[in-house]
Write a protein that binds this DNA or RNA. Structure first.
Lengths: 332, 332
DNA sequence: GTCGGGATCTTACAAATGTCAAGTTTGATT
DNA sequence: AATCAAACTTGACATTTGTAAGATCCCGAC
C-alpha cells in the first residue's frame, strides 16, 4: 500500500546499476542491457523510472536562467523579500492551442518551480544546519522533494503545516515531509490528523490532542515554510482529490473565495473567507503564518488569480513562480 | 589562451538556456532549437558541451553501487582507513580486444573515480566547513572537479600540493584548484613554481621564495589530500605532456621506479627512488604526506603496478579506485 | 579590401531511444 | 492444481539524437 518507494530494494538496486552504466560508464542502453542480462526495453524503463523517482537527478549549475526584471517587479509590487521566477515558455508551438499544450505547460511549471524551490531549500539548509522547515502539500512540493536529493542536513527538522490527505499520493503532506527527511537525513514530523475535519467541533477535538499540539509548537518555530497556492476550479487538485465537493466549490466561490493555501480559502484581497470549511481545516492559520518566513510556490497559469490574491494578503515573504504565470500576473 | 572557461558568458548563457529547456522543461532538441532560434545541430553540441564542462551534472543518489568485498580486501591488505571501489566493467564486449576497448575503459575509469572522489570531497566539506583540501593533478582530478559543482563551501581552502605544468591543460594543478574553488565558492591557493625545476639548485631557489613557503605551510595543514597515482610508461601522462623525456623514463625504470605521485617517483616497495629527477620535483614530499590524510586516486588498469607499489608505502590512508584495476591488483 | 580560419547553417544519414502489442514467465491466490 | 495479474521479453516501429560534409557567414589579421 505504501507504493513504489517501499516496493523493494531489488529494483532500486537495478535502477542504480542501470543508471550507473548508462550515465557514468557511458554505455548505451543496449550494452547496459546485455551487461545486466535484461532487455533494452527494460533498461529504458528503469532509466525513466530512475529519473522520475529522483534517483538520478540532473542539475544545472548556473547562476541565472530566470527573469530578473519580472522578479524585481513582483518583488516590489507585493513587498516581498525575494522572488524567483523560472524561465517562461510562452506558447510551445504555433499549432496546438488546446489541452495538450496546457497539460504540458502545467507539468513543466511544477517541475521548474519545484526545482527552484529545492535550490532555495538547499541554500537555507546550508546556512542553517538546525533549520525547521514547514511544508504544505501538492504537486509542486512533490517536485521539490524529488529535487532535494543529495542535500545533507542531518540536524534539520521537517514539519507538515497541515493535516493529511486520506489517499496516499506522492503529494500528500505526509509523503512530502517523509521524502524530504529521507533525502536530507533530517527528522520528519507530521500533524497526525486529517486535512479537513468532519465538523468544527471535531476539529477542536483533534486539535486538542497532545501530539497535535506538540507538532503545532514545532510548526510555529519553522525557520522557513514552503506552501503552495491552489486555485479554486473544477480541475484543481482539491477537487480532483475529492477533498471538497462540487457543491462546496460553488458555495466557496459564492463566499468570495478565489483560492486556497493548505486548505485555507481566501478572497481576492487575500483574506480568509467566512465559510464553514475554513472552520474545519486543520492547518497553521494566516496569523501564525505571518509570524513565519513563508515562501509561496506558484506553478501553473491556472493559479494566476489565486496567487495574486494570496500575495496581497502580505503573508508571503518570498515567492517562487513559473515565468508564464508571472508574466500574466503582471499583465504582460 | 585561457581556453573554454574564459571564452565568454555568451555561450555559457546559451548552454544554460539550452540545458534548461531540454532537461527541465522537457523540450526535445528540435523544439529547443526553434525556441532559441538556432539549429538543432547546435543545440546538440551545446548540450554535449554543457555535460562535458560540468555545467549540467548528473548525480545518482544511491548508497551503494560499488564492490563491497573487494573494498574490504584492499582495505585490510594495505591497512587503509577506507576504500571505495567503482563498479567493474570487465571486457566491454566479446569482439573488441584492442585499442578502442582500452581507450574506452580508460575514460570510464577517470570519470568513475573522479565522481567517487567528488562524493568523498563533498562529505568531507559538509563535515568540516573550514577544511583545507590538498590536490594533485591529472585527468582523474580533472574529473573530480567536474563533479564537484553544486557543493557549497565558502570557508574551505584548496591548495595545490605541487608546482604547475607549463602547458595550460584542464588537469594542470592550477586548473584543478581553480575549478574546485570556483565550484564550491572556496579559496584557491597555488605553488607558483614549475612542477619540475631545471636543477636541484634551482629547486632550492624556488622553494626558498616566500610565497612558496607560505603555500607549503598551508599545504601541510591540509585536512585531506587527493592525489593520483601515475604509471611509468611511454603512454603515461607524464610522457605525453613531455614532462619527462624518453631517456629519463628509461633511467627512472633502471633506478627501479614503477610509478609516481605528484612527480615523485617510487619503486615497487613504494619508496622514493634515488634519481636526480626526484631532487628536482617541487611537491609535498612523502614525509609530509605521511602527516596528512592522503586519499589515493587510481584510475585505469595501466596503473595497476604503480598503485600496488604506492599503497605499500603506507602513505595513503584512503583509496578510490576503479573496479577493474582493483580486481587485477587482487589477482582476480 | 581581401584573405584565412573558425563557427554556424543546411542537409542528409546512421545510430540510439522511446513505445507498443502480443506472447511468456513468475509468483501469489484460491 | 488451476487461475490470475503483474512484470518481463520479443520483435517491430516511430521518433529523437548524434554526426558528418559541404556551403556560408562572420571577424580579425594582413
Amino acid at each position: 500500500m505504501l507504493e513504489m518507494s517501499a516496493e523493494g530494494h531489488e529494483s532500486q538496486m537495478l535502477m542504480a546499476r542501470a543508471a550507473w552504466l548508462y550515465y557514468v560508464a557511458g554505455f548505451n542502453q543496449e550494452a547496459a542491457a546485455k551487461r545486466l542480462g535484461i532487455t533494452r526495453a527494460r533498461i529504458n524503463k528503469l532509466l525513466a523510472d530512475a529519473r522520475e523517482s529522483g534517483l538520478v537527478s540532473i542539475q544545472i549549475n548556473q547562476a541565472y536562467v530566470g527573469l530578473l526584471p519580472v522578479e524585481e517587479e513582483l518583488r516590489s509590487r507585493y513587498g516581498l523579500d525575494f522572488c524567483v521566477c523560472t524561465p517562461e515558455l510562452g506558447q510551445t508551438d504555433a499549432g496546438d492551442q488546446g489541452e495538450a499544450a496546457e497539460e504540458f505547460l502545467r507539468g513543466y511549471a511544477f517541475r521548474a518551480v519545484g526545482m527552484a524551490a529545492a535550490a532555495h531549500l538547499k541554500r537555507h539548509l546550508q546556512a542553517n544546519r538546525t533549520a525547521v522547515i514547514g511544508t504544505g502539500w501538492g504537486r509542486t512540493l512533490e517536485q521539490m522533494t524529488l529535487n532535494s536529493t543529495g542535500i545533507s542536513a542531518p540536524d534539520a527538522r521537517f514539519i507538515s503545516l497541515m493535516g493529511s490527505l486520506t489517499a496516499n499520493s506522492a503529494y500528500n503532506p505526509f509523503e512530502v515531509v517523509h521524502a524530504l527527511a529521507r533525502a536530507t537525513g533530517g527528522e520528519g514530523h507530521f500533524l497526525p490528523v486529517p486535512f479537513i475535519a468532519d465538523s468544527a467541533a471535531d476539529r477542536q477535538v483533534l486539535l486538542a490532542q497532545r501530539s497535535v499540539q506538540q507538532a503545532l509548537v514545532l510548526a510555529r518555530e519553522a525557520t522557513v515554510a514552503y506552501i503552495s497556492i491552489g486555485e479554486l476550479t473544477e480541475t484543481s487538485l482539491l477537487r480532483r482529490q475529492e477533498m471538497i465537493s462540487a457543491d462546496q466549490l460553488v458555495s466557496l466561490r459564492a463566499a468570495g473565495a478565489v483560492g486556497d493555501t493548505n486548505g485555507l480559502f481566501f478572497d481576492a484581497a487575500g483574506s480568509p473567507v467566512d465559510h464553514e470549511l475554513n472552520s474545519r481545516t486543520i492547518a497553521l492559520g494566516f496569523d501564525d503564518l505571518r509570524q513565519t518566513n513563508v515562501i509561496a510556490l506558484v506553478a501553473g497559469v491556472a493559479k494566476q488569480h489565486a496567487a495574486d490574491a494570496f500575495l496581497r494578503s502580505g503573508v508571503a515573504r518570498g515567492l517562487v513562480i513559473d515565468g508564464d504565470t508571472a508574466l500574466r500576473i503582471l499583465g504582460k
